[in-house]
Computed example of a mutant assay.
Amino acid sequence: MPFLTSLFFGFVPMFFFAYILYWTDRYEREPKILLVAVFFWGVAIAAGGAFIINTVLGMGVYIFTGSETASDLTTGSIIAPIVEEALKGLAVLIVFLVFRKEFDSILDGIVYAGIAALGFAATENTHYIYNLGYLESGWEGLWFLVFVRVILVGWQHPFYTAFTGIGLAITRLQRSGCIRYLAPLIGISIAMFTHAFHNTMASFLTGTSGLAIGTFMDWTGWFFMFLFILWAVASERKLLMIHLKEEVSLGLITATQYHTATSTWKQTSARFQAFFNGRYPATQRFYQICGELAHKKHQYHTLGNEKENVEIIKKYRAELKTLREKAEA
């Protein structure tokens, strides 16, 4: 029972957090199969690989120094941030390289990175809650670790790894220039630095006051990332407003559908109504295509006919024409 409880509170809150990230991508949602894949990359490959590498390198430091304190500090402040951010970031890099056409914006980078990190956090949280919570202090320790790992630091891993996703997204949207090559390196460096900073502070800030200070610092970082995500969502809406005007003039979407496509709340209302009148599949696909088309047009204007953007735009326009009469406005 204690292990199942640890497993439940390790994974279920992270599923919920992952859904929140998925929900923020309102205008052009990513394929669920890719999001599930990066989540379970975090669960198994990133978390499993990090456990093995961190343990081996930590033992090496102990053998070299003969100090358990030095081993713990080096592992937490240097080894773990580098290893864990590299392994989590690898999932985002694979999406970036292999499924490039699905990697369209800053928000996409945050979503893929955050969900991969939440998979990692699910495994790590289960370990902490059971092994460092229940096995060391019984049920009281278990519930305390649930509170710490889910409520106090639940968003830490996606916060770190989001910088890797942002860096790759900036590269994706650049045609040339040094920033195209520097952005991913800067992104993962910030991810590793913020991770190392948190772990180092956690090593020195002990007791209730230390927990309070650490929580304040963590939540301050989350707050600014939240504001950045709001900016990214607003930027995507502006992109749709610019690039879908032409579709109205071409008669591919109506003026009402245009206003629905560029409004989170109107899209939600349209999907809700469509659910009850049998038009949900067409409505869901119609507004997804609106988002996809706007991004591809933006990429065409910015990057040229990269990856056959012109052909993709034609395909999306043909699909909009087919779905126009079936979609809820």
Rank of each mutant, 00 (worst) to 15 (best):
75 T>A: 14
121 A>L: 04
65 T>C: 04
110 I>K: 07
97 L>P: 06
73 L>K: 05
72 D>W: 00
44 A>M: 15
57 L>V: 11
106 I>W: 13
66 G>V: 01
51 F>L: 15
73 L>T: 02
75 T>Y: 03
70 A>N: 07
45 I>L: 15
82 I>E: 03
48 G>S: 12
122 A>N: 04
117 A>P: 05
86 A>I: 15
104 D>K: 14
74 T>W: 04
57 L>C: 01
122 A>H: 06
49 G>F: 10
103 F>L: 04
87 L>S: 13
68 E>N: 02
123 T>H: 10
88 K>I: 08
71 S>P: 02
121 A>N: 07
121 A>I: 00
80 A>P: 03
54 N>F: 08
93 L>W: 15
45 I>V: 15
95 V>A: 10
63 I>Y: 12
120 F>L: 07
86 A>N: 05
93 L>H: 10
111 V>F: 03
72 D>Q: 13
50 A>V: 10
120 F>I: 02
58 G>P: 05
99 F>T: 08
55 T>Y: 12
94 I>P: 06
70 A>S: 13
100 R>P: 09
92 V>C: 12
117 A>I: 03
52 I>W: 14
65 T>R: 05
108 D>N: 11
59 M>N: 14
108 D>L: 01
44 A>E: 11
60 G>S: 08
85 E>A: 05
57 L>K: 01
99 F>E: 13
83 V>G: 12
55 T>S: 15
68 E>F: 02
107 L>G: 00
78 I>N: 01
80 A>M: 03
62 Y>Q: 13
72 D>C: 00
95 V>F: 08
111 V>K: 09
53 I>C: 06
109 G>N: 05
59 M>H: 04
108 D>A: 03
114 G>S: 11
87 L>T: 13
102 E>Y: 14
119 G>Y: 04
103 F>E: 06
56 V>G: 06
104 D>L: 07
83 V>K: 10
57 L>Y: 01
115 I>G: 07
103 F>G: 03
49 G>S: 10
86 A>G: 07
91 A>F: 01
96 F>S: 10
85 E>G: 11
56 V>A: 14
97 L>F: 13
78 I>D: 00
98 V>D: 07
66 G>H: 05
89 G>P: 14
114 G>C: 07
111 V>R: 04
55 T>D: 11
85 E>I: 09
59 M>A: 14
95 V>P: 12
57 L>Q: 02
63 I>S: 10
84 E>Q: 12
49 G>T: 09
68 E>V: 01
105 S>F: 01
72 D>E: 13
83 V>M: 12
123 T>Q: 14
104 D>E: 12
